[in-house]
Design a protein around this nucleic acid. Sequence first.
DNA 1: TTTCATT
Length: 490
Amino acid sequence: MATLTNGQVDGTNGLVNGLSHSHSPAGCGGTIPMKDHDAIKLFIGQIPRNLDEKDLRPLFEEFGKIYELTVLKDRFTGMHKGCAFLTYCARESALKAQNALHEQKTLPGMNRPIQVKPADSESRGEDRKLFVGMLNKQQSEDDVRRLFESFGSIEECTILRGPDGNSKGCAFVKYSSHAEAQAAISSLHGSQTMPGASSSLVVKFADTDKERTIRRMQQMAGQMGIFNPIALQFGAYGAYAQVQQQQAALMASVGQGGYLSPMAAFAAAQMQHMATINGLPGGPMTPTSGGSTPPGIGAPTVTSIPSPISVNGFTGMPPPQANGQPEAVYTNGIHPYPVLQEVGGCFLSSLSEAQSPTAADSLQQAYTGVQQYAAYPAAYGQISQAFPQPPPIIPQQQREGPEGCNLFIYHLPQEFGDVELMQMFLPFGNVISSKVFVDRATNQSKCFGFVSFDNPGSAQAAIQSMNGFQIGMKRLKVQLKRPKDANRPY
DNA sequence: TTTCATT
């Protein structure tokens, strides 16, 4: 059917031709719908983005009277998100639809079958969903089910696959209860090594939204090209344009206390930072937090942050305490640069419920990831400053600081030169020198270098925030430089 | 080795 394979649906019959029996429920035209008190809201996934409510309605109406059907759209762009919520007047209709459709049919243009299942809001599934890693890539969903079925009733089992359909060697398994999931972890985690897997089976609770957010931010940081100094200096304003939309999204989500897309947060924070540095007004980023918004959830309160125009302004300046976090959560009381940290705080404020001294370790862990994330855009701000304005102090000569002030940095991006290296570390203090080592023959960076500060505190702060910082696929190694004569036996 | 998406 050409209409469908082209993804062109005329809205009156396109989809139904393939899927429904053109049956209309009798007796419900024109009535005001009422739903049962035990109705179930269904989540519908894998919907082609060119189908709207009126296209979808016929497909679902055959299972009963629809109370509400809403295609999810981006709040600002209006972009179809490829999924919908569906509530039938009768609970029974939802069950019938789920049975008949879930994973049973692939809509035109989609490469995975339609999803019809209770919405997250109906159940709260996170605490019974497991991530299973280190599977053999040949193992099917059924194989995984067999492995897990003795611990409880499995509601969902999905092998993660790439675009080519190949297994990524991991899966999600959702039980009907937390206890069942826990039992599976106890019995299966590390219990065996699948042929071809590089280590033993991993069975753990799947990431929470927050963990996923953090993971995504890290990935995004690698993707956006912001670690490439060329892109940084010449592409900053292009990036600015690209993300404006997302900034708008950030504003409203923050204002409404809604979900904050990591991309939006990241982009907005960058722009905020740039605006601040360039002495521009913060645009529409008026903090709207208040009322029930928890501390730290507000828009990054740039207005409350001293303008970081002075390079020295970064030195040892204690940032505002987002969330009222105790000092203890920062190792040694050393703080990353404040601007993005507040955005970090935004994500973390909810991670840090139920604070207690015993929670300090896990908090520290949580902070480490975000702190790392938080740190770079500070450097980014500095670099963007270099674009419209003369660059900050460039060291005229190699100077080594006192012991404890000199850092060795490994796994630098290939493109990084002395200046980029310095800019990356400026947020932590006065950089008195920076040197990337280059291959004499090729003039290519050897991807390591040295940075010297004028005081050990700055060096420690830099280690704290930048060691392990993910850039693309690599993580920076940032440690104290060994004293000159160390490790020389002669 | 953490998903395509959950107002």
